[in-house]
Structures are given as C-alpha cells and as structure tokens.
C-alpha cells in the first residue's frame, strides 16, 4: 500500500456507460493484476475503490461506470487534475496457477482487470483466452486494447447485437479451460462457478470503508471464515466462496 498524488492523463469514454481514467504517478506499489486503488474525491468523505485495468512505470488506468455521485464527479475530471490515491491494495490474481491456456472472463465494468492480467500472462509466455460479456453492442469496451495485445476476445451480448448472443457462460462451456479468472457482477461470477468444472479465481466488488483492512466494512463469509474483501481479497479462490441467497 502506498499513498500518492496522481495527475489525470485522460478520462475518455470507452462506451456510453464506461469511461477509462488514466492517472500518472508512482505506480510502484501495484504488483499484480487484480489489485485495486482507491481515489480520494474532493467533496466526498470515503475513498472510491477501483480495480486496476492496466499499469506501467508511468501510472495506471481504471475503468468505471457512472452509478452514483462519486462516479458522476469522476466523469468531470480533466487532464491535469490531481487526485490523492492509495495504490497497491488487495491481493490480486495468482498468475502461478494459470496453466498454459487459462480463460479470462469479464462482465461489464469487470472486463477492466482482465486487460492487465492478459498482458502479464502473455509476458510469461502463456496463451490466455478471453471472454467479455456485455448487454448490447454499444456497451462493448476494451476490445481494441485486447486485440493490440494479440488476443482475440470472444464477445457475448445479451441481445446478440454483437458477438455471441447470451451470457459469458455460453461461451465458456465450449472452451473447457483448466483454470479461469473472472471479474464481474456477482450473479455472473456465480454462474461461472456453477458451469465450469475447473478451478479458478474471482474478483469481488464490495462497498468498502477504508479499502486496506482496518474497518471490517466489506467482510464476506468464506469457507475459511470471515474475510475482508479489501485485504484478504478482492480475489478469492473458487473453492473458498460461499454464495449468499
């Protein structure tokens, strides 16, 4: 964990729902894909946590959807604006378990950490396959970024207006992976866990207080007891998850 001031590089739309915010500054605390950052926003008390989409030595990017007042404020951020950010939060994905051809599954804004994960798996000489799920054609995001990496994602849309019609699980059934990584709405994560026979890791969203393990605000029950999503997660092994009804 590291606290630092970052400068907005750009804040550009990826789709009508999603924007990508690039922040320039000391990214040295970010060690693994699947870790997150939390932004202090002027006029808001609590920080806002976001998965790191991708990062390099000059900074990092996040992908966000406008869902409330905090993200509404973020939409107005401009190049050159400065933000206080905690970086290097959470455990991140365990790349050592990937095998040769893991499947990366992202849904909605949950496609975000899959880009950084795909890049690092490729660097390690593995061949990730990627499934990205969206509602409709205009929601599709990050496709070009994956293509630039040399990965050709399978896209699913609920209405069939782009790629395969249906859910990410419809595409997953054909791939028969040995390991998966997933990030997206909880209903998607649950469906992924229920339809795949293999082991995998999933990144969970939670309403957090501190984001670094102090307040117990984001606790989730697991098979090995209560865990803090922010500190013990946000990535959990498939076998650890207790699904709530």
């Amino acid at each position: 964990m590291k606290q630092g001031v970052f400068t907005v590089g750009d804040n550009a739309p990826l789709s009508p729902r999603l924007k990508r915010l690039r922040l320039l500054g000391d990214s040295s605390a970010i060690a693994r894909p699947g870790q997150f950052v939390s932004l202090a926003l002027p006029g808001f008390f609590l920080r806002r946590p976001f998965s790191v989409c991708d990062w390099d030595a000059s900074g990092f990017s996040i992908v966000y959807e406008q869902v409330g007042k905090g993200t509404d404020y973020m939409r107005s951020l401009r190049t050159g604006d400065r933000l206080d950010v905690l970086t290097g939060l959470g455990n991140g994905f365990d790349l050592s378990r990937a095998g040769n051809a893991p499947v990366l599954i992202g849904g909605g804004s949950g496609v975000s950490p899959m880009l950084g994960l795909a890049r690092r798996l490729l660097t390690e000489g593995r061949s990730p396959r990627v499934i990205l799920g969206f509602g409709t054609r205009e929601d599709v995001a990050l496709l070009e970024d994956f293509r630039l990496l040399g990965v050709c994602p399978t896209i699913t849309t609920l209405d069939g207006s782009f790629g395969l019609r249906g859910l990410v699980t419809d595409a997953l059934e054909e791939l028969q992976p040995s390991f998966f990584y997933a990030c997206g709405p909880e209903a998607m994560l649950r469906a992924v866990a229920e339809c795949s026979a293999c082991d995998g890791q999933m990144s969970f969203d939670a309403r957090m207080g501190c984001g670094f393990g102090a307040c117990m605000g984001c606790t989730r029950m697991t098979r090995s007891g209560p865990k803090r999503v922010c500190r013990d997660g946000p990535v959990f092994d498939r076998g650890e998850i207790v699904w709530e009804d």
Binding site: F45, C215, G217, C218, T219, R220
Partner: peptide, 23 residues
C-alpha cells in the same frame, strides 16, 4: 462475531455511516 450483513458502510456529508456490528 461475524458482525452485521453487508453493506455495512455508507457515505454521508462530511462523514460516513458504519454498521459493522463488532466483528
């Protein structure tokens, strides 16, 4: 104690609410 169900945290003007419940 596991504490309360989530969400346990909410934003407030110049502050926050918590209902952790002594986890």
């Amino acid at each position: 104690r596991f504490g309360n169900p989530t969400p346990r945290i909410a934003e407030a003007p110049a502050g926050m609410l918590n209902a952790v419940g002594l986890q």
